[in-house]
Amino acid sequence: MIEARDVTVVFKRGIRRKPLRALDGFNVTVHRGDVFGLLGPNGAGKSTAMYCFLGLIRPTQGSIRVGGLEPVPGSKSFERIAYVPEEPHYHLYLTVFEALRYYAGLYVNDIPKARLEEAIRRVGLTEFRDMRLDRCSKGMKQKLGIATCLITQPDLVFLDEPTRGLDPVIVKEFRDIILDMNRQGATFVINSHILSEVEMVCNRVAIMDHGRVVVQDDLRQLMKYDSDTYIVEFSGPDGLVLPEFMTATPSLHDLRRGALPSQHLPEFMRFVETSGIKLWSCALKRQNLEEAFFKILKGGPMG
């Protein structure tokens, strides 16, 4: 679906300032059907990469192919591509319904009213259909962008920080719509700083730093098990003295949750037998995306 090979983007910044190398040997592959997360700290080059995918910035060096073609805005290949920016700029004098009819109508002719109403219903804007956009919240405007995608039925959707600053209810609705569209065949590329959301929707990610992709992999591989640590849940009498090799904190329903090095597991199991505690679970620690993200950026081992 998307292939970027050895892409470099250099911005000139005047006579007295050094050129800015926004992308530096950038390589990435997005497969058809992916929900692909583009991650990295501020200044890593995520937005520049997305603008290159959209044909808004031409690489200084290297090549980009979207659907097998060089990205050129306005070309026929872009009829099946959608982009929802972090801060959409709409004609604010339009109502929600009028805006959807206008913007979706730029891509699809003679849209039946019932189809517009269904898209508005699906993103939860029915009661606001006649509200002017200058009175709508950021979340409502983001929903309008997704509603436009529902009308145009794109094969490829780019989302730039889609849930930043939105309340948890709208975030959940966004997540459900993205996953539903993906099940129907849409591919997504999501630029986001909210790692917990990426972890819930993406199947593959690329982590960027200083204009390069540091790691590109299946999300499950990045969140692999830590073979050196076990996580245990147990219950026991008050005043129980734990072995020195483990740490524990209170958990739910009078349970305690602890961590211990894997080499001490046999010793811990003997402690369970002799101390009278009840062991509820024992499993290798699984790191989350945030832990993997910071390990990768610091150049540490992945576990």
Rank of each mutant, 00 (worst) to 15 (best):
E87M: 01
R65T: 11
D155T: 09
I177Y: 04
V7P: 12
A104N: 00
G211K: 04
M302R: 05
A283L: 12
G62V: 00
H264S: 13
E291V: 05
V215D: 10
F188S: 04
L54K: 04
V157T: 10
R270N: 11
V205Q: 10
E117K: 12
D209G: 04
P154M: 02
A99G: 08
Y102E: 08
P266Y: 06
P261I: 05
M140H: 13
D238I: 05
D6L: 03
P85F: 07
F294Q: 03
R101T: 14
E199H: 10
S75I: 07
L150N: 01
L240M: 12
M131H: 11
M1P: 09
I190Q: 04
M140I: 09
D226W: 04
T95S: 15
I81Y: 00
F26H: 11
K298D: 15
D238K: 12
R257F: 13
V232S: 07
G55E: 11
A4Q: 03
D180P: 10
M1A: 09
I57H: 05
A104Q: 00
V272E: 01
E87A: 11
V84K: 05
P243Y: 04
R58V: 10
A99Q: 12
R101Q: 15
R58Q: 10
I81V: 13
L297T: 02
R32F: 15
N288D: 01
T249F: 08
E3G: 00
E98M: 07
E118F: 03
M208T: 11
P243F: 06
H210M: 09
N182F: 03
S227K: 12
R16T: 13
